[in-house]
């Protein structure tokens, strides 16, 4: 880093505006491209997909940024520490222990609620010990998280092997939705949950800013650190549940979105960085979906493209400048 570089007067508001325009343009393009006259059918259908993409983008962006604030590290995401595979594991466990017939007959909203609750409780238990203590060894946290991720994934696939394969395939569609067949009820519930979480978080935006200074400085400035971190972890757990329920685990997307957002609006202020991240996520997902549908003609899974592009961007970023 050159020492003679002076601080550029950042104009995050303008950047946010541009991002907003881009997101809107992508959304409009997504809705209107190649409609071919069948407005009655296409608009609601695409609207639902668009809503899913925006909601997922928002959930991933906000959860990742908050998680990085708590951990004080730009290369960690809830996904890298196994949060979203925890969700998959919880789903699999429910299926395994309750039996598929019970699960199918349950109200999906109730099921989702139960899953989110378990998720919050579990993530609290699992990560409290890692982030709550005074002595935080970041390497240990990272490694433990990555290993936990593998554990969750292997345990899920272990249990999935124990479930009758035919039954599992039948249920798989239900469990691992994608942008293309969003469940309307689930979408509404997710939206409400996300809204609730956002209202809760909105009141604490300035406290989040203080956390950026690190645990000790935050305590010095009078922030109830343990309570705030606990609350953020709960918010993160809920948001990860939302995004995982809607599209399944997406490992690097959060990393990509958060780092891009930090790169375009260089600020510590959550009131700016959170919307920026959400908008970046919206642009990436919606534009990606447009490309997917009209260039690749649906011939692949959106996750594949996200991982590919996200991974490349991340590596390039690391090579130019180490994050953090």
């Amino acid at each position: 880093m050159s020492a003679d570089r002076v601080a550029v007067p950042a104009r995050p508001e303008r950047t946010l505006f541009i991002l907003g325009c881009m997101a809107t343009a992508c959304a409009v393009l997504f809705m209107l491209i190649d409609v071919g006259g069948q407005w009655d059918f296409v608009l609601p259908f695409r609207g639902k997909k668009l809503a899913t993409a925006l909601l997922v983008g928002y959930a991933i962006a906000v959860s990742t940024v908050l998680f990085q604030t708590v951990t004080g590290n730009r290369v960690l995401t809830p996904a890298i520490l196994g949060f979203d595979y925890l969700y998959v594991l919880i789903q699999t466990c429910l299926l395994f222990f309750l039996g598929s017939s019970t699960v199918v007959n349950l109200d999906p909203r109730l099921l989702f609620g139960v899953e989110v609750l378990i998720m919050v409780a579990f993530s609290g238990l699992l990560y409290w010990g890692l982030f709550g203590g005074a002595r935080r060894n970041l390497h240990l946290v990272l490694l433990t998280g990555v290993v936990l991720g593998v554990l969750f994934r292997s345990l899920s696939s272990f249990l999935q092997r124990l479930i009758d394969p035919n039954e599992f395939i039948f249920l798989q569609d239900r469990f691992f939705a994608s942008f293309n067949n969003p469940d309307q009820e689930l979408l509404v519930v997710s939206f409400l949950v996300t809204l609730g979480v956002s209202v809760l978080g909105f009141r604490m935006l300035r406290t989040f800013d203080v956390l950026v200074l690190g645990r000790e400085t935050a305590i010095n400035l009078g922030v109830d650190y343990q309570r705030t971190v606990a609350l953020i972890l709960v918010l993160v757990a809920i948001l990860v549940s939302v995004s995982s329920a809607l599209v399944g685990p997406v490992t690097f997307f959060g990393l990509l979105v958060s780092n891009l957002a930090h790169a375009v609006v260089r600020t510590y202020k959550h009131e700016l960085i959170l919307p920026a991240a959400a908008l970046v996520a919206a642009v990436a997902l919606v534009a990606g979906q447009v490309v997917l549908e009209h260039v690749f003609a649906f011939d692949t899974n959106p996750r594949v493209i996200i991982e590919f592009v996200g991974g490349l961007v991340f590596i390039t970023m690391l090579m130019r400048k180490a994050p953090g």
């Binding site: 890298i80 970041l138 991982e307 590919f308 991974g311 490349l312 180490a322």
Partner: peptide, 27 residues
Amino acid sequence: RIPLRSVLVVPLVGLVLAGVIDSVTTF
């Protein structure tokens, strides 16, 4: 080529690279 190789970054780069290659394969 990565300027600041911390213990953290190395396995992450591996994971990300693995993810990228894997996505090509899946595609």
